[in-house]
């Protein structure tokens, strides 16, 4: 599960991604910056799934995009298969992109409505010149469609002829076409119906086993992330606040934010729900343009004290299994009870 040192596929070191904010139309003046990703570090072993959870605007998608160099990181390193890819030029990057693919959230917006399924799935093959002869190209596409559970006879149809779940399968086939080793799944199931979500989750798990894929799984649904991930990073306002094995994260969450997130997810059983403690966070996520000083979570934290308002907590190790937390409180009382 958590193979920490062997087979590291991707390491992210102190990754930051800032977006400048301008004011004025002609004389643009920089008035600040949004720290979408602010010093994120983690590594993913080959074949592992790392879950990235957080609320909207916490920087989880930006992290994914910065890793893929879709937005060039402001600073930090992204080491993929031993090389820092932030330093590559665009030709070198293009070669590498074969190995890193993305599955998008919105199955309706992420497929070109004027392309047939064949063109959509085949496009990466053509770009990377993996298409071979005409017959081989067709065969590859048919095979990909079967792999994701679509009938190859539907290859000449357009996206609007498919349901949400089927479209997501097309998006997955497109990502798989170039045989990547890393797939960044950006909320792949959140736009789907409940009964279809499970189909796609199972498909992703099967594919991972079959092709030894590594996933960075971005989602806001904790139950889904817990199901699919080996390790989980919880993000808040651009920073990782807790990082743990999925078991540790759910059984002994250390950061107050993680505890609140877990408590906020209702369990489909009225008996359990009646007995659960509902820790409610007050307030909303502060604006990332002007984040609070000290611990960014202090404005909503039920355990806040003076130190939190002044000093930013570091991500400290709290157990030998790699459980790390950025909270002043957990350093003092590591065995504080969870809800």
């Amino acid at each position: 599960m958590s193979e920490h040192n062997n087979n590291i596929l991707l390491t992210v070191n102190n990754l930051t991604l800032y977006f400048p904010v301008f004011k004025g139309i002609i004389f643009k003046k920089k008035i600040g910056e949004v720290k979408a990703v602010d010093g994120v570090s983690f590594s993913i072993a080959s074949g592992e799934t790392l879950g990235l959870v957080g609320e909207s605007g916490c920087g989880k998608t930006s992290t994914g995009r910065a890793i893929l160099q879709m937005d060039h990181p402001t600073s930090g390193e992204v080491i993929f298969e031993g090389a820092d890819i932030t330093k590559l030029n665009k030709y070198e990057l293009r070669h590498l992109r074969k190995k890193m693919q993305l599955i998008f959230q919105d199955p309706f917006g992420s497929l070109d409505p004027r392309m047939t399924v064949r063109d959509i799935i085949g496009e990466p093959l053509l770009i990377h010149k993996l298409n071979g002869s005409k017959a081989e190209y067709r065969e590859q596409i048919d095979h990909l469609m079967e792999t994701v559970g679509l009938n190859p006879r539907m290859v000449d149809r357009y996206p609007h002829e498919f349901s949400g779940g089927q479209r997501q399968r097309i998006g997955i086939a497109r990502a798989l076409s170039v045989r990547p080793s890393l797939i960044i799944c950006d909320e792949p199931v959140s736009a789907l119906d409940v009964s279809i979500q499970a189909q796609i989750i199972n498909l992703l798990e099967e594919l991972q086993e079959k092709f030894n894929l590594t996933y960075l799984f971005i989602a806001h649904d904790l139950a889904v992330v817990r199901h699919i991930s080996d390790r989980i990073a919880v993000m808040y306002l651009g920073e990782i606040v807790e990082f743990a094995d999925r078991k540790d994260l759910y059984h002994s969450p250390q950061h107050p934010y993680t505890q609140a997130l877990i408590a906020a997810v209702p369990i489909p059983d009225p008996l359990i729900e009646a007995e659960r403690k509902h820790v409610l966070l007050s307030g909303e996520v502060p604006s990332p343009l002007n984040p609070p000083a000290g611990c960014k979570f202090h404005t909503r934290c039920p355990y806040v004290h003076d130190l939190c308002r002044k000093k930013t907590p570091q991500l400290n190790q709290v157990s030998d299994r790699g459980h790390r937390v950025a909270c002043h409180l957990s350093a003092k009382a590591p065995d504080r009870n969870n809800p």
């Binding site: 499970a198 904790l222 199901h227 369990i267």
Partner: peptide
């Protein structure tokens, strides 16, 4: 009920989706 992952469930348990489309 079998197709939603739950926080209180065994993590290795595979989800049982409803086959087919709505």
């Amino acid at each position: 009920m079998a197709s939603v992952p739950r926080l209180d469930q065994d993590m290795k348990k595979k989800l049982k989706p409803i086959e087919g489309q709505p």
